[in-house]
Design a binder for these strands. Structure first.
Lengths: 146, 146
DNA sequence: TTCCTTGCAAACGATTTGCATTGGA
DNA sequence: TCCAATGCAAATCGTTTGCAAGGAA
């Protein structure tokens, strides 16, 4: 999805919910649309050049999460990282570095993703569970920390 | 695994690593072996009847985590809950019900688990990432809520 | 106007740490 | 004996909140 399309999608979603798409919120969505993985409030604060105070950032993140635009990922030391929700970013999985805590997104090649989906269906059958969504999270060492 | 076997396994592991299995650490492992889900430091503090001050609890948890006896489970509000490590509890995945929020553990049949492991290895190769651990989390509707 | 958002500073709560004391090998 | 573990209190750090000022509808 192009960035301007993305902003339009978000705008629409927020309008539906009577939530204002203010300058601060635009900045957050825009920054997250340009990065590879989830960012914490502090990381976001750096990325956007201290343009928005932390407290306002936290409030924007909370609003965007409640509106279903962002998804939180809980990290160590009580740090929460956010990324665009799946309906905006597309389906992907996470590589979490146990060394530095960085989270990278991977979009699997179709043959991999179909095997994951197949496993998920099979597990659902075994466990009498109706799968709606899945996430394969892999912990390990990223290229930088290996 | 019986509880006394479990304590013996932990004792052995700690001995190998020259880590003392003190009264406080025994209390923590024992409490966690008796509960169904992961517990936070505060919850543990309650469960063991304030027998150990919070700061000591945190230190015990840190030591046991570094020794590979406990695994942290990151929750909202910066709360970390701990459970016995996988080699003590068995490898499993999570089925999260989007209806009632319940989290069920599933232990996959060997042929499923090996396919998951194979995918994880393949993904690591693609992404230049060294996988150490993985977790497949499936969201959907549990049997009760379907 | 009226309600929502923002910025600042202070408050909060989970976790960590400095230091003196205790305890186990 | 002697280093690691403990208890207490104070410090840290991510996050939240009260309040007054700014903005959009």
């Amino acid at each position: 999805m192009t960035k301007s399309n993305l902003m339009r999608e978000v705008e629409e979603r927020l309008a539906d919910r009577r939530v204002r798409f203010t300058k601060g919120r635009r900045t957050v969505v825009s920054a997250l649309s340009l990065t590879d993985g989830p960012l914490s409030a502090a990381e976001l604060h750096l990325v956007i050049g201290n343009a928005i105070p932390l407290s306002s950032l936290y409030r924007s993140l909370a609003v965007l999460e409640r509106a279903g635009v962002l998804e939180p990922h809980l990290g160590k030391k009580g740090v929460t990282r956010y990324e665009l929700a799946e309906w905006l970013r597309g389906h992907h999985h996470h590589l979490v570095c146990i060394e530095c805590g960085a989270v990278d997104d991977v979009e699997l090649p179709e043959n991999y993703e179909s095997r994951v989906a197949e496993l998920v269906r099979g597990i659902g059958d075994i466990a009498r569970f109706t799968p709606m969504n899945h996430a394969l999270e892999i912990e390990g060492r990223c290229a930088r920390c290996a």
